[in-house]
C-alpha cells in the first residue's frame, strides 16, 4: 500500500540496540556455505556476461561496410543491428508460438493430474509427462522433421486455403513445412513438461481450507478450481510459463533441424525460409565462421542473453504486481 501522507519516520531510525547472540559453529558453517553459493552464481553470471561483451566488442566496433566485406555470410550492406534484428524477431516469434500452444495444454494437464485424475493414475501420468523433459532436443528435432512435418502439411495447407486472408496464415504453405509454426509446435512439446510440472506442484499446494470454502458455498469442481485454485496458483503458473519461455528462447538443435532459415521480419507462419532463431543460427553458422564472423555470432548470443534477462524481469514484475492479493499475507 502506498502511504503518501505518512510522517517521515524512516529518516530517523531509532538507535538499534545490538545484542550479540552467541555464534554457534553450525550456524557459521551453514551461513558461509549459503553465502558462498549465492556469490558463486553471481560470479558465474558476471563472467558469462563479461565474456559475451568482450568477444562481441570487435563486431560492435567495426564499421558496417568493413564488417559486411569481412564476414561473407552477413550479406551485402547489412549492418550488425540489421542482422540481429530479424533474428531477435524470429527467436521471440517461435518462443511465443510455443508458449501460446503449450501453456493452456500444460495448465489442463496439470489440473487433470492435481484435481481430476484418480490418485494412482495421476502419479503415473505425472511420470510420463516428466519423461518428456528427459528426451534430448536432437531427438525432438528428428521427430519434428521426420514424423511431424508430413502430418502437419495437410493442416497447414487447409489453413492457407481457408484462413489465408489473415496475414499470419497467408499461403502458399511450404511443403515440407519447414516453417516457424512447425518449429513453434515442436518447441511447445519440449516446454510442456516444465510448465506442467511446476503448475502441478503449485496447484497441489492450494490450501484445503480455500478449496473447502468454495465447495461449502456450493461450487462445482470447476468453480472451485476457478475460485480457489487458479487465483492461488496464478503467480506460480506465470513463473512456470516463463521458465518454459526461457527454454524456448534458447532452444538450438530442434529449431536448427526443423526450420528453414531466413532473415525477414515476417509474420507468415506457413512459409519456409522467413525467420530464424538466434541459437540455431549460431549453431549453423559457427562451423563456417572465423575471426570477425565469430564476434558477430557472439554478439547475437549477447542479445539473446539480454532478452532472456528481460523476460525473467518481466515475469517477476507480473508476479509481484498484485502481491497484496496473492494470499502470501
Amino acid at each position: 500500500m502506498t502511504t503518501t501522507g505518512e510522517p517521515a519516520t524512516s529518516t530517523t531510525p531509532p538507535a538499534k540496540q545490538r545484542t550479540r547472540t552467541p555464534q554457534r559453529p553450525g550456524d557459521i558453517v551453514f551461513s558461509f556455505s549459503a553465502k558462498a553459493a549465492g556469490v558463486l552464481i553471481l560470479i558465474i553470471l558476471a563472467a558469462v556476461a563479461a565474456f559475451l561483451v568482450a568477444q562481441a566488442w570487435p563486431a560492435i566496433q567495426t564499421d558496417s561496410t568493413e564488417l559486411s566485406e569481412r564476414v561473407h555470410w552477413l550479406g551485402q550492406g547489412r549492418t550488425l543491428l540489421g542482422y540481429v534484428g530479424p533474428l531477435v524477431f524470429g527467436t521471440v516469434l517461435a518462443a511465443l508460438i510455443a508458449l501460446l500452444i503449450a501453456t493452456p495444454v500444460a495448465i489442463g494437464v496439470a489440473l487433470f493430474i492435481s484435481h481430476y485424475a484418480p490418485r494412482r493414475l495421476a502419479t503415473s501420468f505425472g511420470y510420463v509427462i516428466d519423461l518428456l523433459a528427459a528426451i534430448p532436443s536432437v531427438v525432438y528435432g528428428l521427430w519434428g522433421a521426420l514424423w511431424l512435418m508430413p502430418k502437419l502439411f495437410p493442416a497447414f495447407q487447409w489453413l492457407a486455403d481457408n484462413l489465408g486472408f489473415i496475414p499470419l496464415f497467408a499461403g502458399p504453405a511450404g511443403d515440407p513445412p519447414r516453417t516457424i509454426l512447425t518449429a513453434g509446435i515442436v518447441l511447445a512439446v519440449m516446454i510442456l513438461p516444465i510448465i506442467t510440472a511446476v503448475s502441478r506442484e503449485v496447484f497441489l499446494q492450494t490450501p484445503t481450507l480455500h478449496e473447502e470454502a468454495s465447495l461449502a458455498l456450493g461450487a462445482t469442481r470447476w468453480e472451485m478450481i476457478r475460485m480457489a485454485v487458479l487465483p492461488f496458483a496464478r503467480s506460480g503458473v506465470i513463473s512456470a510459463a516463463m521458465l518454459g519461455l526461457g527454454r524456448a528462447l534458447g532452444e538450438t538443435m530442434a529449431v536448427a533441424m526443423v526450420l528453414s532459415p531466413g532473415l525477414a521480419y515476417s509474420i507468415f507462419l506457413l512459409q519456409p525460409g522467413q525467420q530464424q532463431n538466434i541459437a540455431a543460427n549460431i549453431a549453423l553458422k559457427f562451423p563456417e565462421s572465423s575471426g570477425l564472423g565469430v564476434n558477430v555470432l557472439i554478439f547475437t548470443g549477447l542479445v539473446l542473453f539480454l532478452i532472456t534477462l528481460l523476460v525473467n524481469m518481466l515475469a517477476r514484475w507480473i508476479v509481484s504486481r498484485r502481491a497484496e492479493f496473492s494470499g502470501a499475507n
Binding site: H210, A216, L217, G218, A219, R322
Partner: peptide, 29 residues
C-alpha cells in the same frame, strides 16, 4: 452442490479467499 448451497458452513480457521476483496468475498456464493 445444491445441498451445499442450501446449507452454509463456517470452518474452524477463517478462510476468506485471499485473492478476493472483502466485497467479492461476500458475494462469492
Amino acid at each position: 452442490v445444491r445441498v451445499r448451497r442450501q446449507i452454509g458452513m463456517v470452518f474452524q480457521r477463517p478462510n476468506p479467499f485471499p485473492t478476493m476483496s472483502i466485497h467479492a468475498n461476500v458475494i462469492a456464493g
